[in-house]
Nucleic acid binder design. Structure first.
Lengths: 196, 196
DNA sequence: ATAGGTTTGGACTTACGAGTCCAGAACGGG
DNA sequence: CCCGTTCTGGACTCGTAAGTCCAAACCTAT
């Protein structure tokens, strides 16, 4: 992995990853070819295989990592500070708003439905994203329990998993139907359940 | 659509659809070719294009319908009779058990992540599945409210959507990580929320 | 039995996408 | 300014997958 890249090379490499991610988000993995990516990023075959010697598979893995990072970044700073009910609400609104806006062209969807299933390595990236995401929610619940706003009787791990599953499913349904109400329902009832 | 098919032709057509569904479930849409399907179903190019004149797209649509039907069938008879807490529990167990068993080769996943996104027609099939599924859960909640086991204050529509989103997401996570605990958490907390 | 359809097999065409290769341009340290 | 390395462009090969075509086999009703 430790290859020597100049600053210029690094920039080109990033450009290819970002462009590939955009292309795949927009049109889907199934119909995206290397030539499409080359055209969009104004690069050539030579460059692509220079930076990704193992070809498409290696590129897709990099794209998966790129997209996984984006999913979490898109929810910050809210996801990292779930320490008051106001913060939970802000997070909920941010998630809904974000997914409502981006509709079917969303990094999470691309990762879960296209990239994430292709290779074991890509699947690992997805798994790691799920873990980190769940951990943030888990810590939010723990923190609320620490300040007595959520009863200790609540199983924080289980609640975090349920909430995360709801968000996942809500987004997934949004993509198929264009309807955000499932995502909203999942978040609202999930958070309401914590409040009792 | 109204083409003339003899009984024999009908059988061949079904065989192709079922075989294609199996193949795609097992290996994924991305790597499944018409030749693979032909080999598996012991048919020929001539037959395939005879029964699906618009080629792969038309076949995939038929496969999507086939798989959507299976998703609901797999949950019966439980999903249609959510009239007691015992029934809800039975449904929950059936869903978990089913998805645990079939792992990554599951009709729902194939539909949501591969087939469902390819064409508008396929997306419509997915949307319809979501609607029907939600409706069953909705009616279950309504029925429980009718017999006073769930308070009328619960918004049945919202609760049904949240639960469905949780199942969706749980399955989706199961596919990426091999871990059923999110699916279980979503079902358990979702049903528990109804009981309060 | 035979004429109309339908069903079937499989060779063939065509298009296209991944990956290879190499020569030349641009860069950067000495 | 010079030399080795990195970067870039694009022509080329090769494999493969979708779709076409047609003739032969098979039904079935009269």
């Amino acid at each position: 992995m430790a290859r020597k890249l100049t600053a210029k090379g690094e920039r080109t490499r990033s450009r290819i990853i970002a462009g590939a991610a955009d292309e795949i988000r927009e049109y889907g993995l199934g119909v995206t070819t290397l030539d499409d990516i080359l055209f969009r990023t104004r690069t050539s075959k030579g460059q692509l295989f220079h930076y990704f010697p193992r070809g498409k598979e290696e590129l897709l893995l990099a794209v998966a990592q790129h997209e996984a990072q984006r999913v979490l970044d898109d929810q910050q700073p809210y996801l990292g500070q779930l320490t008051s009910w106001r913060a939970w609400q802000a997070w909920r609104d941010a998630v809904v708003e974000r997914y409502r806006q981006q509709g079917p062209t969303c990094p999470l969807a691309v990762l879960m439905t296209e990239l994430g299933r292709s290779t074991p390595a890509a699947r690992a990236v997805t798994g790691q994203l799920i873990d980190q995401w769940e951990q943030h929610i888990f810590e939010g619940i723990k923190s609320m329990q620490g300040s007595g706003r959520i009863p200790d009787a609540v199983d924080a791990r289980q609640a975090a998993r349920a909430l995360l599953a709801g968000v996942q499913g809500g987004v997934s349904i949004l993509l198929s139907t264009g309807d955000v109400s499932h995502l909203e329902a999942a978040l609202d009832t999930g958070i309401a359940a914590l409040r009792t």
